[in-house]
C-alpha cells in the first residue's frame, strides 16, 4: 500500500458509470418535431361519411390532427375515448378535431369508428401523402395547430385527458391575431 494513488485507477471509472446512470433519466425518443413552429401542411381528404375534410376550411379555429390506425393496439384504442370526450367538450369552444387514418383497411377502420362511437370527422389518407407531409413516424401521433394554422405541439403515443386539455386550453386562450413563436 505504498502508493495510494494507484487506487485512483478503479475510481476513475466512476464518472463514466455515473454518466451512464444519468441516461436512465433521459428519453432518447423524445425528439422535438422540426415542424413545430411552422405552418401545417395543407390537405384535403374525404371523410368516411363522404364529406370533405380540409385544413383550410378551419382557419381561425384551433385544430387538432390525430393520426391513427385500427391495427394500432393498444395505444389508439386507449386514446379513442379520450379524443371523443375532448371533441364533445371543446367543439363549441372553437376547436376542430380531425382524425386521419393511415395504412388501414377501410372496413377495419369503419368498425373502429363504430366501436368507439367517434363523432368527429375522420378521413382515410389513401395515398399516404398527408402522413408523409406531417412526418408521421408511427401511430398514434397528434398535432396541435393554433388559430393561424401553425403547428405548435406534437404528441407521440396515446393521449390522455390531461395532455389534450393542457395543449388545447393554451391555444384556445390565444387571441386570433397573436403571432406564435417563430
Amino acid at each position: 500500500m505504498r502508493r495510494a494513488w494507484r487506487w485512483l485507477i478503479p475510481l476513475s471509472a466512476i464518472p463514466v458509470l455515473a454518466l451512464l446512470a444519468y441516461g436512465f433519466r433521459t428519453n432518447p425518443r423524445d425528439i422535438a418535431s422540426p415542424l413545430v413552429g411552422r405552418p401545417a401542411p395543407a390537405f384535403a381528404l374525404t371523410a368516411f361519411d363522404g364529406t370533405a375534410v380540409s385544413l383550410e376550411a378551419h382557419r381561425g379555429r384551433v385544430v387538432v390532427v390525430n393520426f391513427w390506425a385500427s391495427w394500432c393496439y393498444p395505444a389508439c384504442y386507449e386514446e379513442a375515448p379520450v379524443l371523443e370526450r375532448a371533441w364533445r367538450t371543446y367543439r363549441d369552444r372553437g376547436l376542430t378535431l380531425i382524425g386521419v387514418d393511415i395504412q388501414d383497411k377501410r372496413e377495419a377502420a369503419e368498425k373502429f369508428i363504430r366501436d368507439f362511437g367517434l363523432t368527429f370527422p375522420n378521413a382515410q389518407d389513401l395515398t399516404g401523402k398527408v402522413s408523409v407531409d406531417f412526418g408521421v413516424y408511427g401511430v398514434p401521433e397528434t398535432f396541435f395547430l393554433d388559430r393561424r394554422g401553425q403547428i405548435r405541439a406534437k404528441h407521440v403515443g396515446a393521449l390522455t385527458d390531461e395532455i389534450f386539455r393542457a395543449n388545447v386550453e393554451r391555444l384556445l386562450a390565444e387571441p386570433e391575431g397573436k403571432p406564435g413563436p417563430a
Partner: peptide, 9 residues
C-alpha cells in the same frame, strides 16, 4: 469494472 481495476491496483 471496480473489482477488475481494483485488482489491477
Amino acid at each position: 469494472v471496480l473489482v477488475a481495476l481494483g485488482l489491477v491496483a
